[in-house]
Design a protein around this nucleic acid. Structure first.
Lengths: 111, 111
DNA sequence: GTATAATACATCGTAACACGAAGTATATAA
DNA sequence: TTATATACTTCGTGTTACGATGTATTATAC
C-alpha cells in the first residue's frame, strides 16, 4: 500500500489495537500487520507521539521475567477514533469525486 | 481534515480533476476545493511531482491574451487512479479494523 | 483614474512523518 | 551451540503539505 495513503491511518490503527485491552509493542505489530504493514521503528515512533499527545498512557510490568511496556488508551485516544469516523465520511466524498465517471461525449474543448 | 489523512489522496484528486478534460492550476484548485482543502503551493508541488512521474503532460496555450499551462493525464496517470481503487479496498478493511466493536458490544448489536 | 479583487503561476523554508538500519537484551527451540 | 522469537530503542534520510512571499495581468468597483 502507498506510504502516503497509510499516513493518518496508522495512528488510529494503533489506538484501535489497544482500544479493547491494554497491549504492548510486539503484540500491536502482530495485530495490526494483517491490515497494514507496520515496522517496529514506525510503531515505536507512533507510540511516543500518541503518548506525547496524551492519547495513551504507559505502564511497565513484568511478564515472565521480562519487562513489558503496556499501553492504555485514554479518553483523548477514544475521541481520536470517533473523530476519525467523521473524517472517514469526508474521505468517502473524496473517493466519490475521484471515481465518478464523466458525462460521456461532451465536448473535449476547454472553454 | 487531518493533514496526514489527505496525503495519498491529493495526488489522485488532482489526477481525477484532469481526467475528463485538460485543466490548469487555478481551475484544478476550484474543482478540488469543495472536496479537499488545497493551497496553491501544494497544488503546484503536486503537479510538478506528477509530471516528473509521467502521470501527466503539460502544454502551454494562450487564453485571452494570457498564458496558461494545461495539464493532460497520461496512461500512467489513469493507471494510478485504477491502482487507487484497489488501494481503497485495503483502506476499507483497515477502516473495519479500526471501527470494529469489541466482543461484549457485538452481542447487543443487530446483525 | 486608481484601488482592489480575481486570475495565474512559481519558489523557499520548515515541520511532520514512515522507515530502514543498527543496536541491546533475554528466552526458547533446533 | 546456534538460531529464532520476543521486546524495546535510536539515528538518519527522503518525502511531503503548506504558509509566506513574489511576479504579472485583467476585470471590477469606488
Amino acid at each position: 500500500m502507498d506510504i502516503q495513503l497509510k499516513r493518518g491511518l496508522l495512528d488510529v490503527c494503533v489506538l484501535a489495537a489497544i482500544k479493547n485491552e491494554d497491549s504492548y509493542g510486539y503484540k500491536i505489530i502482530k495485530d495490526v500487520k494483517p491490515y497494514v504493514e507496520l515496522s517496529e521503528s514506525t510503531l515505536y515512533t507512533i507510540l511516543k507521539r500518541l503518548e506525547r499527545a496524551n492519547m495513551l498512557s504507559v505502564h511497565t510490568a513484568e511478564h515472565e521475567g521480562r519487562l513489558r511496556k503496556y499501553y492504555h488508551i485514554t479518553s483523548a485516544g477514544l475521541n481520536r477514533i470517533e473523530e476519525f469516523k467523521n473524517e472517514w465520511k469526508e474521505m468517502l466524498s473524496i473517493y466519490k469525486f475521484i471515481t465518478k465517471e464523466d458525462i460521456q461525449n461532451e465536448q473535449t474543448r476547454v472553454s
